[in-house]
């Protein structure tokens, strides 16, 4: 029972269906239970929240990631899947707290000072949530001091910085310098992304990594692992 429910969760994540009213990415899914209904059923059947996340939601997102990489899925398909996972996580959160399962880590996200673009940051945030991370989104046009203050207060393991403009991406370097000067740099991994940003730029400002797209950002966070605090 549990296994077939988990398989259905995987399939419905890949179909981007949060609820039974949603159409699938392919034909013929309408009316059938979506991810949120299936997650509730699985909980009722005694499947642990941890299994639902690892063998259902995350397993589904891995397939979505592969389909996105192979260009079978477009950004909207990926977002539909991530949204379904996000809705399921809301149902699971109280159960996680009860079971003592911890989030994989905390990520602070911000679009830097002077930049108003937040779509890329939002996509990375929702994918990270779907992958089991706690994400605190500071928004866009966030000045260096506010980012550094938030790092001090929130103590996240990761900081994700986004910029869409060549004129604002330099702010990312400012944030890293400020983290260094305030003694916080070694406590956190800093990843950067956005249209004008590159691997080379990331290295030049002393970031820990560059994510070319949402899934690359998630892989990067996974590979950097929990930082030593």
């Amino acid at each position: 029972m549990g296994d077939s429910l988990l398989d259905l969760i995987v399939q419905n994540v890949t179909q981007g269906r949060a609820s039974q009213d949603d159409e699938g990415l392919e034909e013929g899914w309408e009316g059938q239970p979506g991810v949120t209904e299936l997650v509730q059923k699985a909980l009722d059947a005694g499947v642990t929240a941890e299994d639902i996340i690892n063998k259902g939601l995350t397993a589904g997102m891995v397939i979505v990631g592969e389909k996105f990489e192979s260009k079978e899925y477009y950004i909207p398909d990926m977002l539909a899947a991530a949204e379904a996972v996000g809705a399921a996580m809301q149902i699971l959160e109280p159960h996680l707290a009860k079971s003592g399962m911890k989030a994989k880590g905390k990520v602070l996200m911000a679009t830097v000072k002077g930049d108003l673009h937040d779509i890329g940051k939002n996509i990375v945030s929702i994918l990270l949530r779907g992958a089991g991370y706690t994400v605190k989104d500071l928004g866009n046009d966030v000045d260096t001091r506010s980012i550094v203050d938030a790092v001090r207060e929130e103590r996240p393991q990761f900081l994700g910085l986004s910029a869409l403009l060549t004129s604002t991406m330099v702010q990312m370097g400012e944030v890293i310098n400020e983290l260094r000067e305030t003694g916080l740099r070694d406590s956190i991994k800093v990843i950067v992304g956005g249209a004008p940003v590159s691997e080379e730029f990331a290295r030049s400002i002393g970031a820990d990594g560059y994510g070319a797209d949402g899934f690359a950002a998630v892989r990067l966070v996974e590979s950097l692992g929990p930082s030593q605090q």
């Binding site: 179909q15 981007g16 269906r17 949603d22 159409e23 699938g24 990415l25 392919e26 034909e27 477009y74 950004i75 909207p76 398909d77 539909a80």
Partner: peptide, 17 residues
């Protein structure tokens, strides 16, 4: 703008949306 090439159609869910 959503990233679809001129020869590709979105999936039913995305198309209705």
């Amino acid at each position: 703008s959503l990233g679809y090439r001129s020869d590709s159609e979105p999936s039913p869910r995305i198309a209705s949306l």
